[in-house]
Simulated assay, not measured.
Amino acid sequence: MKSILTCQGITKSYGSGDIIENVLKQVDLEFFEGQASVLIGPSGSGKTTLLSILGCLLAPSEGQLLIADQSVNFFDKSSLTEVRRQKLGFIFQHAQLLPFLTIEENLAIVGRNAGMNDADIKQRLDNLLQRLELQAMRYKHPNQLSGGQRQRVAIARALLHRPSIVLADEPTAALDWLTGKTVVELLLEQARLEKAVLVVVTHDTRMLPLFDRILSIADGLLSEQQQTAIADNTFYTQT
């Protein structure tokens, strides 16, 4: 498999002098195309901090982040903007759609920011709306959609420009179990189809069987767990 995203000795610290808190401690990780990973851990363990670094929103204190074997320069703001627009797709706990734009307009703006031409945007938009069963919502505004529909739009927005990396921070926290599971399954299906790296932060352990990898973080230290299915199909994790 092709390596898409790599963490090498990522550390994130806050404070100075004798008062320094290490939120992340020497994280080494590699993500491959089409691979879906879930990141779990208690509140304050460093999940969102790691996701923010993977998304080039937060610079590490030590170590480096590589995208397609190229080191990310966190001090070059224009370069970071291009990386986020071209290679990254974000899905947040709340859809964060622009309320004054239609669903079509919310999606099209992502394509324009990524440098896609109008014909490609339309083709891609049509395809995603059909796949995610959003055709009837095309000209509606976000406040006319249910929570689950808005999250499906958020998935379409994250995938529209065919990013190689898709990151989701608690995308189902505001949804009921069945709607949340449907949203995650749609996200997994589309990310795998596009051969994108997918990293999802969640507190809902019921989602774990859906993913290829389970990454657990506690006190800034990361470990990987293996999924094991026993005879009665009960799921559990084994470190």
Rank of each mutant, 00 (worst) to 15 (best):
residue 1 M to G: 13
residue 3 S to K: 07
residue 7 C to H: 05
residue 8 Q to W: 04
residue 8 Q to D: 02
residue 9 G to M: 07
residue 9 G to N: 06
residue 11 T to I: 13
residue 12 K to F: 07
residue 12 K to I: 06
residue 13 S to E: 08
residue 13 S to M: 11
residue 15 G to C: 02
residue 16 S to G: 03
residue 17 G to Q: 00
residue 19 I to V: 09
residue 22 N to T: 07
residue 22 N to S: 02
residue 23 V to T: 12
residue 24 L to P: 06
residue 25 K to V: 04
residue 28 D to P: 03
residue 30 E to L: 00
residue 34 G to F: 10
residue 35 Q to L: 12
residue 35 Q to G: 10
residue 36 A to C: 15
residue 39 L to F: 05
residue 41 G to N: 08
residue 43 S to D: 05
residue 44 G to A: 13
residue 48 T to C: 06
residue 49 T to H: 00
residue 50 L to D: 02
residue 53 I to G: 01
residue 54 L to K: 03
residue 54 L to I: 05
residue 55 G to D: 03
residue 56 C to S: 04
residue 57 L to T: 01
residue 58 L to Y: 02
residue 58 L to N: 08
residue 66 L to P: 01
residue 66 L to T: 06
residue 68 A to N: 04
residue 71 S to F: 03
residue 72 V to D: 02
residue 73 N to C: 01
residue 76 D to N: 08
residue 77 K to T: 12
residue 79 S to H: 01
residue 85 R to Q: 15
residue 93 Q to M: 01
residue 93 Q to S: 02
residue 93 Q to I: 01
residue 93 Q to G: 00
residue 94 H to R: 08
residue 97 L to M: 09
residue 99 P to V: 02
residue 99 P to D: 05
residue 102 T to A: 07
residue 106 N to S: 12
residue 110 V to P: 13
residue 115 G to I: 14
residue 116 M to S: 11
residue 117 N to F: 14
residue 117 N to C: 15
residue 117 N to A: 15
residue 118 D to P: 07
residue 119 A to K: 11
residue 119 A to M: 09
residue 124 R to I: 14
residue 129 L to T: 15
residue 130 Q to F: 12
residue 130 Q to T: 15
residue 140 K to S: 14
residue 142 P to W: 04
residue 142 P to I: 10
residue 144 Q to Y: 01
residue 146 S to F: 06
residue 148 G to T: 13
residue 148 G to P: 11
residue 150 R to F: 12
residue 150 R to N: 13
residue 155 I to M: 11
residue 157 R to A: 14
residue 158 A to P: 06
residue 158 A to H: 08
residue 163 P to S: 09
residue 165 I to Q: 00
residue 166 V to H: 09
residue 167 L to H: 00
residue 170 E to I: 00
residue 172 T to H: 15
residue 172 T to N: 10
residue 172 T to P: 01
residue 176 D to H: 05
residue 178 L to F: 00
residue 181 K to S: 11
residue 182 T to C: 07
residue 190 Q to V: 14
residue 191 A to L: 03
residue 192 R to V: 08
residue 192 R to W: 12
residue 194 E to C: 06
residue 197 V to A: 14
residue 198 L to Q: 05
residue 198 L to V: 12
residue 200 V to G: 02
residue 200 V to N: 03
residue 201 V to W: 05
residue 202 T to A: 00
residue 205 T to G: 13
residue 207 M to P: 03
residue 210 L to C: 07
residue 213 R to E: 00
residue 215 L to M: 09
residue 219 D to E: 07
residue 219 D to I: 05
residue 220 G to V: 04
residue 221 L to T: 06
residue 223 S to I: 11
residue 223 S to P: 07
residue 224 E to P: 08
residue 227 Q to V: 03
residue 227 Q to K: 15
residue 229 A to V: 00
residue 229 A to W: 15
residue 232 D to K: 13
residue 233 N to V: 11
residue 235 F to Y: 14
residue 235 F to V: 14
residue 236 Y to P: 11
residue 237 T to S: 08
residue 237 T to D: 09
